[in-house]
Simulated scan of single mutants.
Amino acid sequence: MKGVLTKMGFTNTGNDVSISPEYFLDLDSGRVNLSELIGKGIGLKYLNINRCIHCGRETKKLFGQGFCYPCFIKVPEAEECVLRPELCRAHEGIARDLEFAKANCLVQHYVYLAWTGGLKVGVTRYHQIPTRWVDQGATFAVKICHTPNRYTAGLVEVELKKIFADKTAWQRMLTDSSELPPDFLTHKAKALEFINGKNLSYIPESDVVYRVSYPVIQLSDKVRSVNLEKVNAIEGKLVGIKGQYLIFESGIVINIRNHSGYLVDISF
């Protein structure tokens, strides 16, 4: 099956608190249920063509996560506040697309702690739960607080980055099989105590711990990430999916989202 890669989607076959993603990939020729392919041999071949995931035009180089340069500098999905919420200016009426901002920036946001092989703090829109956690490969998460918009959530995150990491170490995430750290909720209490009295607008959340169970039948002690521009093709037995990574029996992994815009042929 051929098509342009975009990030993997999923259906939650669990519930709101105990999340079980069943992954799929939408290609030009149809939807592939990736979870059904775990334990089977698959192949992924790059056809040396890139297409912008926004406008669809062919381009030599992709920017961000799958955009041609003109789209990268104008579409709201690639605006600076996507990566740095504290730079959002939608609350001031400034945005690349104000209608997009009304639906995605000027809405309730959560600041959360997640376990991705290590503890990290993050921000997400209310309608991106649990998608954000699944995309990051988090196995546990707890909401610290909610805020009225993206900018305010970004200010809270900036403060909490003084005591928590804000990046996922992908190697640790993919090799981690640990259970919930016993002090997980203690860290949430620490976060709330740290931002208390700092003139930030937020409302604390309850102590609900969310768990994500990924379709993985084998974890490797070491993993090696590959780029399709360098290896052109990969094949092997698919033994798991976690975050946006396909995990192969050999220990090779590939981040599908990072290959957004690549035209590929998938065989299975």
Rank of each mutant, 00 (worst) to 15 (best):
K162Q: 12
T139R: 12
K61G: 00
G118F: 01
V212T: 13
N149H: 10
C145I: 06
R257H: 08
Y126L: 00
A95I: 02
V156W: 01
V223F: 02
L200A: 01
L238E: 07
G3S: 04
Y69H: 14
E99Q: 12
L155E: 05
Q218T: 08
I247L: 13
F63H: 15
G261H: 07
I38M: 08
L34R: 11
T139L: 00
G236A: 11
L34M: 15
P85L: 07
R84I: 09
F184S: 03
V82R: 11
F164T: 13
C52I: 07
E205Q: 11
C71Q: 05
V107S: 01
H259E: 08
E179M: 07
M173H: 10
V123Y: 03
K120E: 08
L200E: 01
T147D: 00
K167P: 00
F248M: 10
K102E: 09
E157T: 04
R150K: 15
A114H: 03
T147L: 00
Y245N: 10
L25D: 06
E58A: 12
P76I: 03
D207V: 13
G66M: 08
H109S: 00
F194S: 05
C68I: 08
G66T: 09
K237Y: 09
S178A: 09
K2H: 12
L119Q: 13
A233D: 06
I195A: 03
Y23T: 12
Y214E: 03
I247W: 02
P181H: 06
I254T: 11
S250A: 08
V121T: 13
K61A: 01
L192K: 11
C88A: 12
S201W: 07
M173S: 14
V231A: 02
S35P: 08
K198H: 13
H127W: 03
Y112W: 06
Y151D: 03
G39V: 09
K74N: 13
N199V: 08
G43S: 15
Q128M: 12
N196R: 15
W115V: 10
K162S: 07
P70G: 06
Y69P: 09
R211A: 13
R257M: 10
S201D: 15
I241K: 05
L106K: 12
T186P: 00
R224E: 14
W133C: 05
V158T: 10
F164A: 10
T13I: 12
K120G: 05
E249D: 14
E58T: 15
Y126M: 01
R57D: 12
S225G: 04
N196G: 06
E157K: 14
P85F: 04
F268G: 09
G117C: 02
I19V: 15
L25G: 07
G243M: 05
E58C: 03
A189G: 04
L160E: 01
P85Q: 06
T124Y: 06
S177Y: 02
S220F: 00
I163P: 13
V212F: 04
Q136E: 14
I217W: 05
V111N: 00
G56Q: 13
V212M: 04
L98D: 01
N227L: 09
I53R: 10
H109A: 00
L119M: 15
V158G: 00
V4M: 08
I241S: 03
E193N: 15
L200R: 01
D97F: 07
G197E: 10
I163E: 05
K60G: 15
